[in-house]
Design a protein around this nucleic acid. Structure first.
Lengths: 145, 145
DNA sequence: CATTTTAATGCAATTATGTTGCAAATATAA
DNA sequence: TTATATTTGCAACATAATTGCATTAAAATG
């Protein structure tokens, strides 16, 4: 478990990215959470450890390499989660459902839920599907009772 | 066709909103388009006819009343489309698929395509589904050939 | 039709969010 | 250890969105 750092270093090298403090920190934070993490939250947690601009660039680099994927919540805020193994710079495989809790505002990657195939009007060519469900997550639904 | 204005005035009154120039103008613009309209586009078209702030407030009021609905595109930009008749202040019925063209960036409301039901993990309570498909719209797919 | 009331607008100021160019610092290769 | 290529941090800028408040305009009232 504490070998996280070693694992992250490998991940960076594999993607041709240098092993730098801000990058390791972002991976550390994201991996320690059970839901997608918003850009503002990351910014807050990293505090003065890294410049705002650096954070943007780290996230952008990670997304391009397929290390993380971005989900926009209902407000249009960017949230990031570490990709499952299938992803690469060439192609993301994040066609799973995202669940945005109305109460705690967490965004969960429901990796097990596949997006159903879709019939679109003639002529349209679908490339990518993006499904966000909103409602109450298991933990919040519980509390309401 | 030119009775649009009368129709819009009714719509406003029905929702307890005063008949003002900026509101009528927004309805006019939105109704004249075949796809959802971005906030920046509206702002540009309205020009100095209305203050930016007024536009924000008009859109917000319309959304609350169920007159229009908001769709975020892949960049998180707000786009607006007039709701079909089923909508009201109490509840939006915009659970149709939105199609975001990678080429022309238009957002189409595919009213005829219903979002399929979804199986989520135990405990999660789904309230709302939001599906955005990306790819090429009929007109752009055509041009590519 | 004049007046009162209420809602909506426009403006100024502020905050949040995201981007660019460039010099300095740092990681890796040589 | 030095060279090189990348990454960072800073400053400046650009864009998007929000708030408070005085003014204006719409509808309700008498």
């Amino acid at each position: 478990m504490e070998d996280n750092t070693a694992r992250f270093e490998k991940l960076l090298v594999k993607n041709g990215l240098k092993r730098t403090a801000p990058r390791l920190q972002v991976l550390e934070i994201l991996s320690g959470r059970d839901s997608a993490t918003s850009q503002p939250y990351l910014e807050q947690v990293m505090g003065k450890d890294a410049d705002r601009v650096t954070l943007y660039r780290v996230l952008q680099a990670f997304e391009e390499k397929g290390i993380i994927h971005k989900v926009l919540d209902q407000q249009g805020t960017a949230n990031y989660a570490i990709c499952s193994d299938g992803c690469s710079a060439h192609e993301h495989h994040d066609e799973h459902v995202h669940f945005n809790c109305d109460n705690c505002h967490k965004i969960y990657c429901l990796d097990t839920v596949k997006i159903p195939a879709l019939k679109v009007p003639a002529g349209f060519k679908v490339n990518h599907l993006n499904l966000i469900a909103t409602g109450l997550c298991a933990s919040c639904a519980d509390k309401v009772n």
